[in-house]
């Protein structure tokens, strides 16, 4: 998808980014360290959602359900004495398995029906967690989750969790890239455009949809697992519908279908919220200012970004960069593809 000379430059950018990612955690002030962990976790979930929406054309309003399932699937065995590191496996696998199982019937719904189906699924999962007290700790929550570790090697501090998280981010991005570039990936993109055309071209539509759904749930499950170990406390209240909506916002702000979009979306949304909180809790602020300020400004940012860059930040940036390149090089496949994709994506919802 990239012009012929681009890969080397791009590899350099990625290498610099990776180095910065690794160097950052220890030098960040403490509250930014946990923030850094959350940005990574949100990026993982958003990446799955972006894949689901952008490439498979399916909407999920219940992605936090898989985040929750991953968290509980990782935490419950660990609380009962299993090695915590195992949770990094059980979290995503259980989430993906449940997604695959419910995906078979659920993905027969499409568009808004599916959005509702996933939303309903999350509410049902939350009720189940709250009521299955013996297993999950009920609505009081599951406490005393041991720190992540293998043997004597334990992750305790936010810096250590930052490394675990960003390692996971890297793994997820690599997997996503390969999926996107693979033959099934191309078939998937066709799926987002027109299911019947894809089916006519011999793409096993139903199976692919379930696979992407399971993969995106697996991502959310992985992030949920890390979240559980990082906080060592989880409860149904940690996974509200608003969190699912926040993932949707991150995906849309960053730009659907772009791997980097999920990272940008997660970072921008998290940082804006954090910044507003910092301003709001300055000592001089009168009583209701924090709430008013954070709601109003967050809302305005959201509105302005979506009105000015309807297809998200990253697609808008790549389109601009591509336009500049076009001055000396003939239009590349990339720009044409991106533009087409952006317009296709608008039909997802």
């Amino acid at each position: 998808m990239i012009g012929p000379r681009a890969p080397s430059r791009r590899a350099l950018v990625v290498a610099v980014l990776a180095a910065a990612t690794l160097a950052l955690p220890p030098v960040l002030p403490p509250e930014w360290q946990s923030l850094y962990v959350f940005i990574g976790l949100y990026a993982i979930v958003t990446c799955g959602l972006s894949l689901l929406m952008g490439f498979a054309g399916q909407v999920s309003l219940g992605q936090a359900a898989f985040y929750a399932i991953g968290a509980y699937a990782a935490a419950i065995p660990a609380v009962h004495g299993a090695p915590p590191a195992l949770g990094l496996l059980t979290g995503p696998v259980v989430a993906a398995a449940i997604a695959a199982a419910i995906g078979v019937p659920l993905l027969r719904l499409r568009g808004h029906y599916l959005a509702f189906g996933t939303l309903a699924f999350q509410l049902i999962v939350l009720t189940f967690i709250a009521e299955a007290g013996d297993l999950t700790g009920g609505d009081i929550g599951l406490r005393g989750i041991p720190p992540l570790g293998l043997g004597s090697l334990q992750a305790v501090t936010p810096v250590q969790y930052a490394y675990v998280t960003w390692l996971a981010v890297t793994a997820v991005f690599l997997v996503t890239r390969n999926v996107v570039r693979s033959r099934p990936g191309r078939a998937l993109r066709a799926l987002a455009t027109s299911e019947s055309a894809a089916a006519a071209a011999g793409v096993p539509v139903a199976a692919y949809k379930v696979e992407v759904f399971a993969l995106s749930a697996g991502y959310a499950g992985l992030a949920g697992a890390i979240y559980a170990f990082f906080l060592s406390y989880i409860a149904p209240g940690s996974f509200p519908i608003l969190l699912s909506i926040q993932f949707l916002v991150m995906a849309a702000v960053g730009g659907l279908g772009a791997v980097w979009g999920s990272l940008v979306g997660a970072a921008v949304v998290t940082l804006v919220v954090q910044l507003l909180q910092e301003i709001g809790s300055l000592p001089a602020m009168p009583t209701q200012v924090p709430a008013v300020l954070s709601y109003a400004v967050y809302a305005l940012v959201l509105i302005v970004v979506m009105l000015l860059l309807p297809s998200g930040i990253v697609p808008a940036l790549t389109a601009r960069a591509a336009r500049r390149r076009r001055d000396d090089v003939a239009p590349t496949e990339a720009t044409a593809g991106d533009d087409a994709r952006a317009s296709r994506l608008s039909s997802v919802l």
Binding site: A299, S346, V348
Partner: peptide
Amino acid sequence: TPPLASLIVTLGLAIFSYAVVI
């Protein structure tokens, strides 16, 4: 403006209303 963008905008307006109501 694509419907997805409009949807997020309505969400933004909902959050804005919190500020107004408060």
